[in-house]
């Protein structure tokens, strides 16, 4: 075991992969409690798939990949915050439409360029092992923005998730903060796509908070728990990935699913125990 850990932490691949992976784990854990509290998990599915359109655009117009994808994802997330309110379409249906539409655009754009340019498997399922220094800079910049927004608005967002009407009546600029929340979720999603890929990103943004939900009793409580689950899941997943040569994103999501099952079973057992007393 000790040998394995030694090998794991000393391998050059992991030394490159661990910093961005842990940074993303920290950011996603923090945002995931907002995603779950605001019931925005479908938004993260929508935005992550929509980022394919951004990647398609970047490939077609030879723009830098991550920035273009980030801009597209944020634009789509903001559109989803504005569109349903104005036109009387519910958020669910709006997400479904934009999600399919932008994914279709992405597929068309990518298929019309030469195949060699795009690592499609990496895009769909993620590959943290190929983070370039440029990507790392983008992830750092994005993380700083997300952390800053959490420090400023976490409490207001929490209040809005609990009761939107009362939040507005107690003097919160709810429309503006909702837009910012959507934008920050968009940004987080793009950073995750590098780690977990388009298809698995939602897992990173839902599972940590879902694990914590059984045990948390307040916002800070949930945040600590979510952070612990996320870091353990990411580390454990990368170890699996290293040991068995599994794709890193999938291994992390699987580890988080295992943690969720344990957390759920433990809370069920606790309930049974309390009932029997």
């Amino acid at each position: 075991m000790i040998d394995f850990l030694n090998q794991f932490f000393n391998s050059p691949v992991m030394q490159d992969a661990l910093p961005p992976a842990l940074l993303i784990a920290f950011i996603t854990a923090s945002m995931s409690i907002m995603v779950v509290a605001h019931r925005l998990s479908f938004l993260t599915v929508g935005v992550s798939h929509a980022s394919l359109a951004g990647l398609g655009l970047a490939v077609a117009l030879s723009l830098p990949l991550l920035p273009t994808a980030a801009a597209t994802a944020i634009a789509i997330a903001l559109l989803l915050a504005v569109l349903p309110n104005r036109q009387g379409i519910n958020e669910d249906a709006g997400t479904g439409m934009l999600f399919a539409g932008s994914m279709a655009l992405g597929v068309v754009l990518i298929s019309s360029t030469s195949r060699n340019e795009v690592d499609l498997f990496g895009l769909l399922f993620g590959n943290i092992l190929t983070v370039s220094p440029d990507d790392m800079q983008w992830i750092m910049g994005g993380s700083i923005l997300v952390v800053f927004s959490i420090i400023l608005w976490a409490k207001s967002w929490w209040s809005m998730a609990f009761d939107m009407i009362t939040a507005k009546a107690s003097g919160i600029a709810t429309s503006r903060l909702r837009l910012i929340l959507h934008g920050m979720i968009g940004l987080t999603v793009v950073m995750c796509v590098k780690l977990a890929g388009i298809v698995l990103t939602t897992g990173l943004l839902v599972l940590p908070a879902a694990c914590a939900w059984f045990w948390g009793r307040s916002m800070f409580n949930l945040w600590w728990l979510s952070l612990s689950f996320s870091l353990v899941g990411t580390l454990g997943g990368l170890m699996w990935s290293y040991q068995y040569d599994w794709p890193s994103g999938a291994a992390i999501i699987l580890m988080l699913c295992v943690l969720f099952t344990i957390s759920w079973a433990a809370s069920w057992l606790k309930q049974q125990y309390q009932k029997s007393r």
Binding site: A37, F162, R217, S218, M219, N221, L222
Partner: peptide
């Protein structure tokens, strides 16, 4: 439809 948020 109050959301299911753990809060004391």
């Amino acid at each position: 439809n109050q959301p299911d948020i753990p809060m004391r």
